[in-house]
Amino acid sequence: MAIKTLNKTEIELLTNEYPKLRYDVGKNVIKGILPFNLKFGPDGVVIIDQYEIEIDLNNVSEFGIPIIKETSNRIVEIAAKKGIPPIDLHLNSMNGSMCIIIPPKAKERYPNGFDLKELLRHIEEHLYWISYFEKYNKTPWKTYGHGDLGYLQLYLEDKIKYTSDFKEHFSCKSRPEFRRKIKELKKTYDL
């Protein structure tokens, strides 16, 4: 985890385009309300909503993703209302942060590392997913399974592209070990 502080351009971006978000220089966190007005695809549903969030820039992953939390407990309440565990709405079971992307995909979305504008758009889309589920009891697009299952699904999505990510995640040091892991996971998850 790395520490990232906002530069002048990034602070101006917040002031001009996200006036309900504030950058606390002392704590190095962005906090406040993130409103959005989004439509998924040209024929999709328009959702206008807002969430209270906190972006902790003291904990930014190697791929540019900081710890992001929804601070008014709304996602937890939606999960409770729907009778599902919060992890099914992609909240980290350890610290309650939002799991917005699987790390290998983060490399693709953030090729140059941390990108505030892209990150805020990403969070908006993630929260669109949550609001859509709250309203329609179904997801607007699929998700990766939790933990190891997500990595298996990623590998099966593009075996050439994600082989190295899979090997790295499961620390597979040899080809036979890699093949054994695939077989084991396929059996475990019945894929």
């Binding site: 959005f36 989004l38 439509k39 799991c99 992307i101 758009r121 933990g147």
Partner: peptide, 15 residues
């Protein structure tokens, strides 16, 4: 902001 249309969202993950 006006409505923003997006087409290629990242898939949520979980652990």
């Amino acid at each position: 902001q006006n409505t923003r249309v997006f087409t290629n969202p990242s898939l949520p993950y979980g652990y």
